[in-house]
Design a protein around this nucleic acid. Structure first.
Lengths: 204, 204, 204, 204
DNA sequence: GATGAATGAGACTTCATTCAT
DNA sequence: TATGAATGAAGTCTCATTCAT
């Protein structure tokens, strides 16, 4: 594993890996099956033995990655809607993103494409569901936006962070913290007066 | 005038408009010059009279849209680095985005494409500069992430808001408010020397 | 003249010059009217004011260059068919080629093109006529080939000489000499024995 | 089998044949891939399965034709630099040209094109090497030109012979003889010590 | 489990040319 | 004397996909 190439019997996996790498690097449309095949030193026809269409490769990729997210959402649905749950949801979601970084970068950077890629809808539904778990059902608009922004932060943060210096791990933590704060602020612990005018959050 | 006429002399504009609409709706690669030409009822060759390449159409689009942003950044650079300035920067940036909504949606949803589209770098630099104006030069990592998230919120917020119900105008305002809060939180008005751990932000 | 550009009233000439330069450098088909126009800082349409078609530009070029050759051939026809005449024909032809070097390089290097360019036939006829003047009407095959080779030497020699070192002027003279010898050898002054073993040609 | 191809279906060869025929008849640029494909009753895409670009077709053609010439040159390099060798070189070269007549006609009549066709340089080098083998290293300018003219005669002679009447075979022989004479004349068998030029190099 | 050969559609691009102004 | 705007035809090339072997 790792850098070595094991050719026997796992071509399917290898195709997916190569495809993901290229899709994520150059975009879906700009990556041709020829490129993928060449990188694996196979013929294009071989790809068609394993996948019915180009889109199918992407679908396969998603199926693998969707499971952790689905489990996370399932877990979330069964928890009490507390701050702790939400915090944990955010934390776990960030981790899931991290484990399938290339795939999510791909989705993030090819939204126009993903949108009509059949998995687009599937993906959107997941995000929507997460969003619903994070926000209070009766949340005001601003609070909804806080949650949405938290999700965006997690999504985009992973990739656009290049122009911020620092240790990747620390950056990840920082993003997580910002996202957590946003979600927390969107769900005031007891009562309504408190508006997360974050200025006062900071005053002792 | 209207649909049929207005042909003489403004074809260039019309091409840009049609292109932007299609690029923003279906993505850059999935929009063919044939489609653009057909929509305008001209030949593909006519497009090439006005633009040297497909990419050139996008470049033209950017040149038009870049100016307001450049002016904003220029303005920003000459202001004192106060909370008011930053708030105003955010407000004006949101407005600029709004005025070129299609273009920014296009950029947002075709990042993989835009990245190697020559304007990618240009665009990135703009964002980077805004980011620099919003954050304190010595800001800690979390605060930097707050600013970054604010920018993301503005960018993504414009488009991903579909699954939040409510009046578009109000949603926009809500996003603006979240972004403003993030930036404000990232630049505490008079932070005490304190410990180098921004942790206290969280303590009540 | 020379390097300066005189724009007034001589656009036609300038077009021809630019065209010839480009045709001769890159070939006829690979030179587009756009290129010619750009080099002159005019529009393509301007070319069409002066020339009816692309081919017409070439025709114009030929008309100018043909005259000296025609005069030469006319002169040749009226001379006695002596060695001196032939020698002089070769000498003058070489000079004519030299004065229209670009044009002849163009013809030489674009034969496949020139062949169906309407002037192709015209040009061929000139060469044929020269050939007829150089060779004896009843010449044997070998002698005909000598003459033909002499003509080829003059044509090709001008351009393919790059990989021979030496002063251009001297090279030209050398070619002329070889061509002259060939023609002379092809027309033995009195009788058949003499074969142009050039060694002896050189001995006083 | 040779290199190992020539499987069932010799489309590759057929493409080359058709291409050569058309290139040689109408010129490289005026021959479109559509024409080639149509003549073979395959799609253009099929051509691209066998050749990466249009230019690649020509390159393939050359690779096949270059071998005999290379062998000839290799042979030449190992022979003593005698009159016999040179005569034999000329004879064999003429034969090689004959065996790949279409290709050489193509090269001859499309020089402007061939020049920037990547094989241009390759081809030029071959000719240069032949030239070097034919001429004495210290030959005077005139003698160099004799050799050059001999090569030109062989090249051009094959095609421009139309306006000389006679049996093709005899014409070919005549050209060969002229070329041989030129080369022989350029390398006098036993030139006397004479003037201080290279002549003495040849004296025993 | 894969390849070799091919296809049909369509992409971007360039060209010579025209014509009203 | 020229230009601005446009066109129709064609060109080279790439792509996802298929299918017999």
């Amino acid at each position: 594993m790792g850098t070595g190439q094991a050719r026997r019997g796992n071509t399917r996996r290898r195709i997916q890996d190569a495809a993901l790498e290229l899709f994520s690097a150059h975009g879906y449309e700009k990556t041709s099956l020829r490129e993928i095949a060449e990188r694996l030193d196979v013929t294009k026809a071989a790809l068609y033995y394993h996948f019915k269409t180009k889109e199918d490769i992407v679908i396969g990729l998603f199926e693998d990655a969707a499971q952790p997210i689905d489990e996370l959402l399932a877990w979330g649905r069964e928890q009490p809607r507390t701050t702790e749950t939400r915090t944990e949801l955010v934390r776990r979601y960030a981790e899931a993103l991290r484990n399938a970084e290339s795939l999510f970068r791909f989705v993030h950077e090819n939204q126009a494409t993903v949108r009509d890629l059949s998995i687009g809808e599937i993906f959107k539904r997941r995000v929507r569901e997460l969003f619903d778990l994070l926000k209070d059902p009766d949340a005001e608009l601003v609070d909804q936006m806080r949650c949405l922004t938290a999700v965006h932060a997690l999504h985009a943060g992973q990739f656009t962070v290049q122009h911020v210096e620092g240790d990747p791990e620390e950056k990840r933590e920082a993003i997580l913290r910002v996202a957590t704060e946003l979600v927390t602020a969107a769900n005031p612990p007891h009562r309504r007066p408190a508006r997360p005018d974050s200025a006062q959050t900071e005053s002792p």
